[in-house]
Design a protein around this nucleic acid. Sequence first.
DNA 1: TTATGTAAAGATAATAATTCTCGTTTAGAA
DNA 2: TTCTAAACGAGAATTATTATCTTTACATAA
Lengths: 136, 136
Amino acid sequence: MNFEQILKEKELKITPQRLVVFEAIYTLKTHPTAEEIIVFIKERHPNISVATVYKVLDVFVEKGIVRKVKTENEVMRYDAFMEHHHHLFCADSNRIEDYQNEELDTLLRDFFDSKKIKGFKIKDFQLHITGTFKNK
Amino acid sequence: MNFEQILKEKELKITPQRLVVFEAIYTLKTHPTAEEIIVFIKERHPNISVATVYKVLDVFVEKGIVRKVKTENEVMRYDAFMEHHHHLFCADSNRIEDYQNEELDTLLRDFFDSKKIKGFKIKDFQLHITGTFKNK
DNA sequence: TTATGTAAAGATAATAATTCTCGTTTAGAA
DNA sequence: TTCTAAACGAGAATTATTATCTTTACATAA
């Protein structure tokens, strides 16, 4: 499915700026910060406004096109990979990687199905795994 | 164990400001923001400096006395409960609650013991559970 | 007692990410 | 082609946080 269709589905106008912001997050697979996205874009399209990038990002998050990734110390980072997944956080650097494991999801879903949290209705869960990357 | 002992163990000087900041986080069981902590403290001790509160919080985080909790939209929040635990995030408000479940931890530990993540050494994990609180 | 060193606190300026404002432009429907 | 709400651009404003610099508290040594 291409990105223009996604915008249409969400009843958002197709604008060059939106295409460009999405392209940036999608190309930078590193869970980029807003600033990294802006730098990437500015190289190709110097006329896009910083405020526009922020606004586009907000709209994307609101409509579920990209996701915000919370980290402990840093600024907000963005992730265009919208399937249910978890994150690996490097304890020594800013590196973040996606982690997807169907078996883990089943395990957790089964756990919470049998073991309800009283007074709380679960919508979603996401595991933050901290550790160190061996390579690179 | 009282708080003065904790400071001693961490080789930190016992100061009134540190006691007061810890008391604030501990009393406000709501994962308060720095600002909420500052407001709480200012009522009782109007002379403490904002910068001092931030510095004390940083030291606490660095020494593992409190923990930072980052949420999607907001500013940093703090948690004085340092045992391994997870968080329940309300999808509709800023409410955050701690969630601790020994069985869940065992389940996850066992899972990752048998199912290593290649190229990654796990130090810790924390589950972010999003949903809605039924009561209050 | 007095001097000295050092960690911590206080006040305020600086920084930086993000948001706001408001005038202008544009996408897409009619 | 025209119209209008939606989106964009530029820069100011905001706000949480950090940095800087001075002062204070307190321990140790002369």
